[in-house]
Design a protein around this nucleic acid. Sequence first.
DNA 1: AAAGAAAAAGACAAAAAACTCTTTTATTTG
DNA 2: CAAATAAAAGAGTTTTTTGTCTTTTTCTTT
Lengths: 143, 143
Amino acid sequence: MFSKACEYAIRALLFVAQKSKDGSKVGIKEIAKGIDSPEHFIAKILQDLSRKGLVLSQKGPSGGFYLDDSTLNISLADVVRTVDGDSIFSGCALGLKQCSETKPCPLHHEFKRIRDDISEMLQTAKLGEFNALLEKNKLFLKR
Amino acid sequence: MFSKACEYAIRALLFVAQKSKDGSKVGIKEIAKGIDSPEHFIAKILQDLSRKGLVLSQKGPSGGFYLDDSTLNISLADVVRTVDGDSIFSGCALGLKQCSETKPCPLHHEFKRIRDDISEMLQTAKLGEFNALLEKNKLFLKR
DNA sequence: AAAGAAAAAGACAAAAAACTCTTTTATTTG
DNA sequence: CAAATAAAAGAGTTTTTTGTCTTTTTCTTT
Ligand code: FES
Ligand code: FES
């Protein structure tokens, strides 16, 4: 469904979101532990997301990654699009070069609905909205 | 969503299904052209599917791949499971080692519905059921 | 200003996926 | 039987994805 990089990205940002609640910043090592991902790999991914403005960062002592009110409102759809491109939002289920109504693949009509459901799920979900449930251990980012 | 191998597999089997309607067999080259896929790659994939009984084959002149009444009734779910395993049917959207109700990831509750929709779509779709629409050019397997 | 901390950058390495090429084996047909 | 045909098998290659390691830059704190 998503690439590994994208899965890590989402989990990392949700982790950062949670920790950012009280304005504090999180280091790479803590993030990697918190979401059970390879440290250097998630570092790369976050560098990318940082360059593209989906997460904020600060170097030096007491630095780290964090989100502000604006970035806490970013949708998972934005994250997915940034990391994986928009194939999941508009690509053909059977790999035709381009999904189209006029030359549909055998799964097109059924798949369209599913794809739209995925889009809506991702568009609706915002980085900041899971903090409470994560805090209460009703939701998990690893294992 | 699916691996390239799996996309090709589905398209190839639907192509073979269509051509098998009147009991004839299709060679690899015709299949590759018919679904616009790398010839040797789809050959490998079909060898696999053949070994596992999802498609029938015959060597020698006038040989090729074909489906009989029994295999025409195989579901796309079977094909996907054979090629890609069952991660799409039961895996976690965010890559947790195991999707579970008791330790759900943030997307779990929404994603479960989507995953089930996908399962149903694939379980319902049988290899033989698209022949008529493919014949009439209402459905396509390439471009 | 100096030291230390932490992200950024860059260069590799390993593994998996996608794709290619060659040889072998089985089957049909003349 | 001989020749031709077509899948099966096996052994690569290339590309992409995933993951690691080292160095550099920037910032904070003392
Ligand atoms: S053409 Fe395949 S999903 Fe639309
Ligand atoms: S735990 Fe992630 S989808 Fe079920």
